[in-house]
């Protein structure tokens, strides 16, 4: 009885190791970096985690289901640009408005989600129907979708979203802007889906053992298609949130976020082999990366160190993952 409780404790600690690391990092930074320990900075960390974090939700679903999606960053940029082009009033923006004004929120959100879902559906078609390699298909999408962003904007930026949209990026609840709460809500919703609903269990099964899942009568193709469409739509949501924060879009918006999202997913304990991982860990991974970015912003350290530290963290995460697997094997 005592042994099993001890094992459960170790298991819990291993599962939530990244939260512990985050806590230690925050304490160390708060003690050593001037101006770090203040509510505004912690709110900034949460706010800055919004976009990479939201994108990482969809990426995690895809990876847990045993696939990969390199197109999420460009999908985010496309959704942001379409939002900017349709609803921004300056630059390349066409400034579509509605009466009552608040209608712009559901309409722009629906457009961004649809744009993302369309890219996801295209990926799914090639991967599921034509049985093409997901890495290559989504790499191609990563390139053509970014090209589409430049093409539809003509390289111009679209700026000044209406106040009826911008308030979501400005108004705060407990110091944290509403857009960050939307992202947190997304994490909670999809964590529940992943842990408590048949869909979540099934995609874990597919990622863990595709053949066995197929033999169990689960419709692998249908579920894989859904995960790609979901990942695209979630990237669309991330793009919408980013457009709200920057009050529009530029053609290079979101550049570099793909690798941050991958880093967060890996640091968060999602196995690139598929079948294993939790969204709680991924969110902790995103917060950890943001905490480090903020620390570097506040210290006099050159920005190149951000990339070096991120790379190092990914390696440490992989080492910890190996260590966790080893400890678990010994416990059994």
């Amino acid at each position: 009885m005592f042994v099993s409780r001890q094992m459960a404790t170790i298991d819990f600690a291993l599962d939530n190791l990244v939260w512990l690391i985050l806590l230690v990092v925050l304490v160390v930074f708060s003690i050593t970096i001037p101006n770090y320990f203040q509510i505004g900075i912690f709110a900034n960390i949460v706010e800055q985690s919004t976009f990479v974090g939201t994108m990482a939700i969809g990426l995690s679903l895809i990876i847990i289901a045993g696939n990969i999606d390199l197109s999420v960053e460009s999908t985010l940029a496309l959704a942001a640009m379409v939002t900017g082009l349709l609803f921004a009033t300056r630059g390349a923006g066409m400034g579509f408005a509605f009466t009552p004004e608040w209608l712009v929120i559901p309409i722009s959100l629906a457009v961004a989600l649809l744009v993302g879902a369309a890219v996801g559906a295209t990926n799914a078609f090639f991967v599921v129907k034509l049985q093409m390699n997901a890495f290559i298909v989504t790499l191609a999408s990563f390139i053509w979708v970014r090209g589409l962003v430049v093409a539809i904007s003509g390289g111009r930026s679209a700026q000044s979203l209406p106040d009826s949209l911008r308030f979501l990026a400005i108004e705060t609840v407990f110091y944290v802007p509403l857009i960050a709460w939307i992202s947190i809500g997304g994490f909670i919703a999809f964590a529940s889906i992943l842990n408590r609903m048949p869909f979540g269990r099934h995609i874990r099964m597919i990622g863990g053992n595709k053949v066995a899942t197929f033999r169990a009568g689960i419709k692998i193709d249908r579920l894989t298609t859904i995960t790609f469409i979901m990942a695209g739509a979630i990237a669309g949501l991330a793009g919408w949130l980013l457009a709200l924060r920057t009050s529009g879009a530029t053609a290079n918006l979101g550049t570099g976020m793909l690798f941050q999202a991958f880093a967060a997913v890996v640091i968060g304990g999602v196995s690139l082999q598929g079948g294993v991982g939790s969204l709680s860990g991924v969110y902790a991974g995103v917060l950890l990366l943001s905490s480090i970015n903020t620390a570097i912003n506040l210290m006099g350290m050159p920005a190149h160190f951000t990339q070096i530290i991120h790379g190092g963290l990914v390696l440490v995460a992989m080492l910890l993952d190996t260590l966790k697997t080893h400890i678990r094997a010994r416990m059994i």
Binding site: N44, Q48, R245, T246, N252, L253, G254, G256, N293, N297
Partner: peptide, 13 residues
């Protein structure tokens, strides 16, 4: 990478 949200983050902090 001349990315706008990176500039926003710097100003925020």
């Amino acid at each position: 990478q001349w990315e706008a949200s990176n500039a926003g983050t710097i100003v925020n902090d």
